[in-house]
């Protein structure tokens, strides 16, 4: 079972790595940002699988922190970078 978990962790990492294409190709900034979010979700999955595969329950804490904080970057993107070129918030 642990071998299977490890195999799945490697598979999830490989599939998520494909998301890097979206970061590099774009075409828009939002595509790249969402691909990074997908990678964050993938990292949570890999961490949880590794936690079971290696019987280290505290890896779930790392997954918890990644899951909790992943959205902060997206909020920073929406609130700080979206207005570039358009309506400028600064005075």
């Amino acid at each position: 079972m642990t071998g299977f978990m490890m195999f799945m962790a490697a598979t999830v990492l490989a599939s998520v790595a494909l998301g890097l294409c979206r970061v590099l190709l774009g075409p828009t900034r939002a595509d790249a940002m969402l691909a990074a979010q997908l990678l964050g979700t993938g990292a949570v999955a890999v961490l949880l699988l590794l936690s079971h595969a290696t019987a280290r329950s505290h890896l779930a804490d790392v997954a918890l922190v990644v899951a909790l904080l992943a959205s902060v970057v997206s909020v920073a993107f929406v609130r700080r970078l979206k207005p570039v070129g358009g309506h400028n918030g600064g005075a």
């Binding site: 990492l13 990678l39 990292a43 590794l50 280290r56 790392v62 922190v65 990644v66 904080l69």
Partner: peptide, 25 residues
């Protein structure tokens, strides 16, 4: 994100946690 996975694989979960918290937050 991937660096914190690497720290996990290197059996340094404290560093992985710090990297995850400071890196993404």
């Amino acid at each position: 994100l991937l660096l914190s996975l690497a720290w996990v694989r290197l059996r340094a979960p404290d560093v992985a946690l710090a990297e995850a918290a400071i890196g993404s937050g």
